[in-house]
Design a binder for these strands. Structure first.
Lengths: 225, 225
DNA sequence: TAGATTGTTAATCGATTAACAATC
DNA sequence: TAGATTGTTAATCGATTAACAATC
């Protein structure tokens, strides 16, 4: 077969199934690449990119190989090219509008969080039940009543939502979101959400993250009591 | 060997190395068990506990077997016993004091977040540089100037810290914390922290979590453009 | 050309699942 | 006793790593 100059700018032929760990690492590669580019770096080798994150060079190459050929033998990867490619793979080459449900402490903090915009996410609408908040516009985001959620989501065609309501309310909120067409949920409520197969949930439980630390800290120091 | 009634209440003899995925799942088991107990449930089988989380019964039993024998053949696991055992394993059977560095939106939200206390974490001190905040006490937590961090951490003997400063400052903050004796860091800044081997870092990058969703949502719907 | 580095195949390692005797 | 369910060993599956020809 002729080796065409097939840099595969559209990561067209993806295998049906990519291991989940690979996809997580893709995001990490992307962050490092963005940082490298900001510092004016033109190219990077798999060895360099890997060591920034504690991975081997082979792993970096293998991960990328799931999606196409992005590198140049003898040179490495061109940062800006690889950034574009990964963003396309992850779907963040375009902006995603996101709904935010629940404006407690965490919800309001996320509303003001600048890190989302930077990566192509925009909170387009927020929902709560507090009369103090409903009807207002916070950080440019209109706050609507939870009752309007189904209609509002459906009309706007939003596909992603963030749940920051108390644990007890989270399952109902999730059901409502899904009924309205949401396909991806970032859930901060400490509950396991049961969802249909076409819906994806990523859960972030802040206490659990700390708990993972206590496990290792306990083990590396003196023994637990 | 005689099979003694060795319920192994102190999970004494742990293998030197437990796979990381096992430890993450332990936290998830703990949450479900706590929920079950709140609902008055006395016992639970590995099949039931697993299906609540989408795991197989075998996996639940295998995971727990790393740490001892906690179940009763024919009956299952007694919720309160297993809760105690897992908390002991994870180290959360006692309260951990935590330092919080950076009182931007996210930091202030975490200061008010109720989910930490519930699992045995208490933010004991917060640091910032804003004159508006330093010296005040917010939610019962004294806010001190970043310059006082080394001394304050060292004196209090804190071993865990949460970083919620901007990305640029995170590496220095981490260094200062580690120099003062911190062994576990929950890092919300979107940077990879380089730390010595005895220090553990768990990173939470909110934009990355959303990015994982866009990947799957893109794939399950129409193709990316 | 010599040196660097990729993409990929084969070998290794580790984690999950199946099966079942032991136990309540 | 019959039924349920554990703990654990062996078999399977999947992911990581090593090695190297191809390429710039």
């Amino acid at each position: 077969m002729v080796k065409s100059p097939d840099r595969n700018p559209e990561p067209s032929q993806e295998p049906a199934t990519v291991p989940q760990p690979v996809v997580s690492r893709l995001s990490l590669y992307l962050r490092e690449l963005q940082r490298l580019r900001e510092r004016g770096r033109e190219t990077v080798s798999s060895t360099q990119l890997g060591s920034l994150l504690g991975f081997t060079d082979t792993q970096v190459r293998k991960d990328l190989a799931y999606f196409g050929q992005f590198g140049y033998p003898g040179i490495g990867y061109r940062c800006h090219e690889l950034i574009d490619a990964i963003r396309r793979i992850l779907g963040t080459h375009r902006t995603w509008k996101v709904a935010l449900v629940g404006l407690g402490n965490l919800g309001r903090a996320l509303l003001r969080y600048r890190g989302f915009d930077r990566q192509g996410f925009r909170i387009a609408v927020a929902f709560d039940i507090s009369p103090q908040l409903v009807g207002r516009t916070i950080e440019g985001v209109p706050v609507r009543h939870m009752d309007e959620l189904p209609e509002a989501i459906e009309q706007s065609g939003l596909r992603l939502a963030i749940i920051t309501v108390p644990a007890e309310q989270a399952p109902q909120v999730a059901d409502a979101l899904i009924a309205a067409g949401v396909e991806g949920i970032l859930n901060f409520a400490p509950v396991t959400l049961t969802v249909p197969p076409h819906v994806n949930v990523v859960g972030v439980d802040l206490a659990i993250e700390l708990e993972q630390l206590t496990y290792s800290v306990t083990r590396s120091g003196e023994e637990a009591t």
